[in-house]
Amino acid sequence: MNSLLELKTAMRDERTEVKPAKRLGTNVSFDRDYGDTVGEVTASNARMVCRDVNVFYGPKQAIHGVNLDIGRNEVIALIGPSGCGKSTFIRCLNRMNDTIVGCRVTGSIQLDGQDIYDPQMDVVPLRAQIGMVFQKPNPFPKSIYENVAYGPRIHGLTQNKAELEEVVENSLRRAGLWDEVKDSLDQPGTSLSGGQQQRLCIARTIAVNPEVILMDEPCSALDPIATARIEQLIDELRMQFTIAIVTHSMQQAARVSQRTAYFHLGKLIEVGETAQVFTNPRHQLTEDYITGRFG
């Protein structure tokens, strides 16, 4: 019978502790060291650790002091309004921003304890370790087989033709595309449908056996069936890889991810268990965004 009292004290505590109008909810626990982000930015079994990441496009700052861990065998969803820097952030994770003239990244991003922005770091093997799937399917203008074989080939992952064929078949199988294309491996990759192309791109990415897979809106051009296939695939890949996915579909984020990070104007506003973020977001901005009150 003293629980009611407990409840009341908890609520009062929360009222004093949380800045009004900024944070909702109760028992907010966050580490002051990690800036203003609400929620737990650290992960117990972190594979990638980002600390105080800032990204500049010329004089313009696109990402402001983001701290975030990405855990092993975890799917983390990055959500947020258009232009908030999700793509920019995810492209930092495998140094794809290097290809953009005038883009500068500060702070530290570690993969398994190694700083990937270390000047000694070679981006070629790094990108083999951290694969990326893009918003628009972008198969190379080559045959389906060559598309998948491309990565293993440039990294010399296979000794002979038979091995390469095995890798190709395996990757296509895991991407759930094998049965559809096994008789037409020499057809151009561009002749496939959009959903098939996207799965081909995923097969191409997993063919080099990366440790982390980054996906930037991988389903934005696909129909619900193809989307469901890819979501299923992500769920299966999670056993083996660490996955970060940018998506504009709240439902998709809720379905595929274990953790969700909400970005707003280049800042990481809130991170948390996906279930919590979608039922009980702690930050007003997150709440407004996911419930469609934004703007």
Binding site: N94, M96, T99, V123, V124, P125, L126, R127, A128, G131, M132, F134, K136, N138, P139, F140, P141, Y150, G151, I154, H155, C201, R204, T205, V208
Partner: peptide, 15 residues
């Protein structure tokens, strides 16, 4: 040639 093709190759670790 679309930038996306370049991105695709770079993301696979091509030089």
């Amino acid at each position: 040639v679309p930038q996306s093709l370049r991105d695709g190759a770079y993301a696979l670790g091509a030089t």
